[in-house]
Write a protein that binds this DNA or RNA. Structure first.
Lengths: 248, 248
DNA sequence: GTTTATATTGCTAATTAATGCAAAATATTT
DNA sequence: AAATATTTTGCATTAATTAGCAATATAAAC
C-alpha cells in the first residue's frame, strides 16, 4: 500500500467515524503505530485532520469535500448547530445545498424523524445517512457548479409542495439589496423554495452580511429567520432585526 | 513493446487498480524500474497520473467513496471498461445505481459528450464531475439502502423518456428466472428504465450469473446486452448467448 | 544503404525517503 | 502517586529515486 493511499484510507476513516485511534489504524492496515502517527502528523500539518493524543479527529467531516477544505467551517458549524434547534419531529423541510447546509445535515440528531426535500446531491446524500429521515429528491438537470437540480421541472415540483420550513444557505444578504446570488438558475430554485414554505430561515456566516451580488432572490421581508454564528445581541445584526427578521 | 504501448498499458493498469507499484509493472512487462519510473514521470507531467514514492495513483483515486470497501472492484472495473465502448457522443443514457455503474462513471472519457439520466445519488455525483456530460436527476423519495430515487413520481418521469441506452447493474440473472432483485421499489424503477430505452445493457460480474432473487424485473428476452468480466467465448456465457443476449 | 543525429533504455553508485525498533520522556487514567 | 498508554527521539534497515554514463535502438539526412 502506497503512502498516499494509506493516508487517503486514514482520511476516509476519519470522515466516516469522526475520530480514529492510532492503534486501530495500525491494526487494520498492518503498519506500525509510528507510521500511522507520522501520517496523522502530516495530515494534521496540511490541515486535513486534528491530531490528538492517541489518534486524530475529523476537521470538516466530509466525503464530498475531502480535498478542498471548506471555507470557514467552524463558523458554519455554529450556524448549523443553531439551526438544528429549529427542526422538530414530523416537519417537512425544503433545503438548498451549500456547505452550511451540509454541516447542518451532519449535525442532525439520529433520533430526528422528519422529511427533507432537496435538489442538492451532496445534501441528499448526507440526509440519507440518517436512519429516521425521509429524503425526497427534487430532480431535474444538475448544475455542475453547485450540484443542485435546476430548471422548470424542478421548479414546478417545488411549487407543488407546502413545506413547514425552508432552510437556505445564503450567498449575500443586505438590508438594502435583500438576498442576492450570482447564478440565475439557482436563484429561480431558491425563489420557488421560499414561496413553497410557510417559514424561511437563512443560514449565513457573518462575513456574508451586508454584501450583495448580481441577481436578487427576494427582499428581507419575504423571509423570517436569520441564523449566523454571532451572538443574538451583536450590533451587526441590529439592522436585520429591525427589518423584521428573527435572529438566532 | 513500444514506449507508447507500454504507457498505454500502464495507464490501463492505473485506471483498473487505482494504484500501481513500479516494481510490479517492471516485472509484468519486463523492463527496468528506471524505464517505468521515467514513464510514470512523463505520465505525471502530462497530468495522467499522480506520481508517488514507489509507484503512481490514479488521478481520481478518492472522491465519493473509497473503493477498498467495494466487493470485487477489479472485475467490476473490467465490466465498466467494456461498457464504455458502447457509449457514443450524443447519446441519451438511462442508468441505475450500484457500484459497477459508479466505476463506469469514473472510466468515462473526458471528451465524451452525452446526457446521463439517473435516479442514483452517487452516480449523479460521479457523472457531474465530467466536464462534457449533462446530468438529469430523476427525483423522488430516496431509498436509503440503495441511494436511488424510487416511487411513482420517479417512474412516471422515466416513462416520459425515450433513451438510446439503458445501463443497469444487475443483482441476479438466470436463464430460467430472468433478471431478479430483492427490493420491490428498486425493481419498479428498473422495469420502467428498461421499457423507456431502445436498448438495455446489463452489467454483471460473473458471480451473479445463474443466481436469482425474490422479485422479477423482466425476462432475458426483454434486454439486449450482457457485459461481464469474462471472455466472450466463456462457456458460462453460452446459455445467455443462446437466450438471445449479445455478449460483451 | 550508409551514416549521423536523437531517443530510449539499463546499469552503477550516491542520495533520499519510508518504515520499524527501542529507550526515554510525556500524557492520561485510576 | 502509581500504573498504563502514547509520543518523542535517534538509529538501523530496507526500498526507491536521482544522475551520469554506456549501449542500443530508432529516425533523419546524405
Amino acid at each position: 500500500m502506497l503512502k498516499k493511499e494509506r493516508q487517503a484510507y486514514i482520511l476516509h476513516q476519519v470522515s466516516l467515524h469522526n475520530s480514529v485511534l492510532s492503534t486501530d489504524l495500525s491494526n487494520s492496515i498492518n503498519v506500525s503505530e509510528d507510521t500511522i502517527r507520522r501520517d496523522l502528523n502530516e495530515l494534521a500539518e496540511t490541515g486535513k485532520v486534528i491530531k490528538v493524543h492517541g489518534g486524530a479527529l475529523s476537521k470538516s467531516f466530509n466525503s464530498f469535500y475531502l480535498r478542498s477544505d471548506v471555507y470557514n467551517v467552524d463558523n458554519k458549524k455554529i450556524v448549523a448547530q443553531k439551526t438544528v434547534s429549529l427542526i422538530k419531529d414530523g416537519m417537512f423541510i425544503l433545503t438548498g445545498g451549500g456547505t452550511t447546509i451540509i454541516e447542518l445535515a451532519r449535525l442532525l440528531p439520529e433520533t430526528l424523524k422528519a422529511t427533507f426535500l432537496t435538489g442538492s446531491i451532496p445534501a441528499a446524500y448526507e440526509y440519507a445517512q440518517h436512519p429516521n429521515i425521509e429524503v425526497i429528491f427534487i430532480g431535474d438537470k444538475i448544475a455542475k457548479k453547485s450540484q443542485i437540480a435546476v430548471g422548470g421541472e424542478a421548479i414546478s415540483k417545488i411549487k407543488a409542495i407546502k413545506a413547514d420550513l425552508c432552510l437556505l444557505g445564503v450567498n449575500a444578504i443586505d438590508t438594502l439589496y435583500g438576498i442576492t446570488d450570482n447564478d440565475w438558475d439557482v436563484v429561480q430554485v431558491k425563489k420557488a423554495m421560499i414561496e413553497a414554505s410557510t417559514q424561511t430561515a437563512l443560514l449565513s456566516i457573518s462575513e456574508k452580511l451586508n454584501t450583495h451580488q448580481r441577481i436578487k432572490i427576494c427582499d428581507l421581508a419575504d423571509v423570517d429567520i436569520l441564523i449566523t454564528e454571532l451572538d443574538k445581541q451583536d450590533t451587526i445584526l441590529e439592522p436585520f432585526s429591525k427589518a423584521g427578521l428573527t435572529i438566532f
